[in-house]
Amino acid sequence: MNHAPDAVAGVDHDEHRSPYLRAWAALAVLTLVEYFYASIFRDVLGVLVIGLVFWAAVKAGLVGWFFMHLNQERAWVYLLIGPACLLAVLLVLAVYPDVAMQPVDGEAPNAAQALKTGS
């Protein structure tokens, strides 16, 4: 889409353009893959999550690597993004036990409990 009128281009032109278009094609294909993967494994949560997170990571990697030019950047970019990603993972891991692993109240939710207490 959006092919510019001067489709006939020089060699260096193609050098600049082709990685973007190839990444775009790969992203389009991966979106389809995700779509069908999700509809096939919709009932197998473990497989679904692992597979989709993998595909999403590949897609995010493609965007970062080609569109955001991480392939051409130097270490300083990683010094900025690396700690942020590390902290992101750390935060989720530290919060996980307190929010995701709290024992679920077996009896009844709190509101009903309060009602009972009051009655």
């Binding site: 935060l91 919060v95 307190d98």
Partner: peptide, 11 residues
């Protein structure tokens, strides 16, 4: 979860 706020706040 109320505790989540405390985590995010103190982070």
């Amino acid at each position: 979860g109320p505790i989540l706020f405390q985590h995010l706040f103190w982070f």
